[in-house]
Every structure is written in structure tokens, then in C-alpha cells.
């Protein structure tokens, strides 16, 4: 039961970082992705609502399957989580509201909310995981901002068909800042941290090379795997926990629902699989 429960938690957590990481990264890079903001936002518009529910589901599963773990971990990273949720709210409001007003001031204000909120979400993930790693919180925020931004840039390049140079420049930046910062944040348990930092370095090089060869699929796979350094380092630094005694019901329902959930999401991906061809409702 423990294995199944961990698998579910991991699956939904990974889903959030790989999918949601892309739209958060696009939000961070909004000022660098061209002057037609509506067009840029159309790259993530159909997805971001369906992406963030992976985290909501992770939270729900954590409450039901590992309540003791939740109580302990939330206590250790309380401040970072409060900032994370506040930033998440600010960012979503920026996305939803910018298109509902007419003035330039209104749009600039909510664009600012999207950008600031997206950076704060990426940074608070870094701080939260850094706290779990044993104190290198600000350092790991550098790593997490780097991988979020790169993933967003690659996704934007794929969906918009432009801005490949931005993504290609970001990969080395994430490499030279992110990898040392990850090692520094996990200095207390270097044996545990180093393999992940090495993996991150390799993936960032791969992403850079793939972008150079204009292999966007490979680049997105690399940046999507690179962003997993955040949840993976969180996972290996979590205290041991066993699943709740009555976890069976939730686990069963979750596995029954899983194909339906993936199918629903796949329908969205399939519907909006092409390049952006015009602005959206946002």
C-alpha cells in the first residue's frame, strides 16, 4: 500500500512540475517574449487551468495518504508555502484579468502580477525544497528559477515558433548558476544531492544542444526532466512516512480515475496541439 500511495503522490507531483512548470516559466519570461502579450499568453491559455490541478490533486492526496507527513512538512516550510499560495493567486489573477479591461494601465498592472507571481512561485518552490534539504533555501531558489524559466522558454519556442535564441541562452545560464547552487544548498548531504545536480547538468546540456539542432521535442523533454530536480530533491529529503491505515479507498479510487484524468488532459493537449495562430480569451 505504501508503494502505491507513494507512486500516486509522485505521479501527480511530477505531472504538476512538468506541465505547470511550462506555464509558470512562460509567465516569468513574459517581458522577453514579444510585444503582443495576448499572443504570448495564448501559448499557455488553454493549459494553465488544467496544469495547476495536478498540484491541487497532489495536495489532496497528501492529506489523505500521508497526513502525518503533511503536518510535519508543512510545519517546516510554512512560510514558503504561504508565499507560494499567495503568489499562485496573484499570478492566476494576472492571467485571468488582464484581458477583461481596456486601458493600458489595467493590462500593465495585471501583466506585472503575472510576471511577479510566476517568479515568486518558482522561487518559493526553491525555498521550500531548500529548507527540506537542510538550510540552503535561498541558493536552491536560484536553481528552481532557472529550470522553471528554461522550461517556459522551450515551451514558448515550441508553441509560438519564435524565441528559440532566448531558450538557447537560458540553458547555459541555468547550468552555471543552478548546478552550483543546488550543490551548495545540499552541502550537508552532498552524497544525496550530487547525483541529482549531475543529472541536472547533463539535461541542461542536452536541452542546449537540442535547441541548437532545432529539435524542439527533445528540448522540451530535456527541460521537462530538468525541472524534476525540484520535486526529486524534495522527495529524497522528506522524512520517512507510512501511508494512512485507511488509505485503501483513496488509492483505489485514484487508480480507477487515473485513465479518465489522463484522457481528459490528453484531449486538451490534442485540441491545442498546433502552433498558436491568434490571441485567446485571456
Amino acid at each position: 500500500m505504501d508503494t502505491l500511495a507513494y507512486a500516486l503522490l509522485g505521479l501527480f507531483g511530477v505531472g504538476y512540475f512538468v506541465l505547470g512548470g511550462a506555464d509558470i516559466g512562460v509567465g516569468m519570461l513574459l517581458p522577453f517574449l514579444g510585444r503582443d502579450r495576448r499572443l504570448t499568453l495564448a501559448a499557455i491559455a488553454p493549459f494553465f487551468l488544467g496544469n495547476e490541478v495536478w498540484l491541487v490533486a497532489t495536495g489532496g492526496l497528501l492529506t489523505a495518504l500521508f497526513p502525518g507527513l503533511e503536518a510535519e512538512v508543512f510545519g517546516r516550510i510554512w512560510g514558503a508555502l504561504v508565499v507560494l499560495i499567495a503568489a499562485w493567486i496573484v499570478r492566476d489573477m494576472g492571467l485571468w484579468l488582464r484581458g477583461r479591461g481596456d486601458g493600458a494601465v489595467w493590462r500593465t498592472f495585471w501583466d506585472g502580477a503575472t510576471v511577479a507571481g510566476s517568479w515568486a512561485v518558482a522561487a518559493s518552490w526553491g525555498v521550500a525544497v531548500g529548507l527540506l534539504m537542510g538550510g540552503g533555501a535561498p541558493l536552491f531558489a536560484v536553481t528552481s528559477c532557472g529550470v522553471f524559466a528554461l522550461h517556459g522558454a522551450v515551451f514558448a519556442a515550441l508553441r509560438l515558433g519564435t524565441h528559440t535564441p532566448l531558450a538557447r541562452r537560458l540553458a547555459p545560464v541555468a547550468l552555471v548558476t543552478g548546478v552550483p547552487c543546488a550543490l551548495g544548498a545540499g552541502a550537508g548531504h552532498l552524497g544525496r544531492t550530487a547525483p541529482y545536480a549531475a543529472g541536472l547538468a547533463l539535461l541542461l546540456v542536452l536541452a542546449w544542444a537540442a535547441l541548437g539542432a532545432r529539435r524542439y521535442g527533445a528540448a522540451l523533454a530535456s527541460s521537462g526532466l530538468a525541472i524534476l530536480v525540484v520535486p526529486l530533491l524534495a522527495a529524497v529529503n522528506l522524512p520517512d512516512a507510512t501511508a494512512a491505515e485507511d488509505a485503501g479507498l483513496t488509492v483505489t479510487v485514484a487508480f480507477v480515475m487515473l485513465p479518465l484524468l489522463v484522457a481528459a488532459q490528453a484531449w486538451v493537449w490534442w485540441t491545442f496541439r498546433g502552433r498558436v495562430d491568434g490571441p485567446s480569451y485571456l
Partner: peptide, 23 residues
């Protein structure tokens, strides 16, 4: 065990589907 199950089921059975389809 008692309180977590309905909340987890809410996110999995309902909210996840609702938000995906609303998009």
C-alpha cells in the same frame, strides 16, 4: 483517515476534471 478521504476524492474525482474541461 476520515477527513482526508473526502478531500482527496474531491480533488481527484471532481475538481481535476472540472478545471480541465472548463479550460
Amino acid at each position: 483517515d476520515v477527513f482526508g478521504a473526502p478531500l482527496a476524492l474531491e480533488t481527484l474525482v471532481a475538481f481535476f476534471v472540472e478545471a480541465t474541461f472548463l479550460g
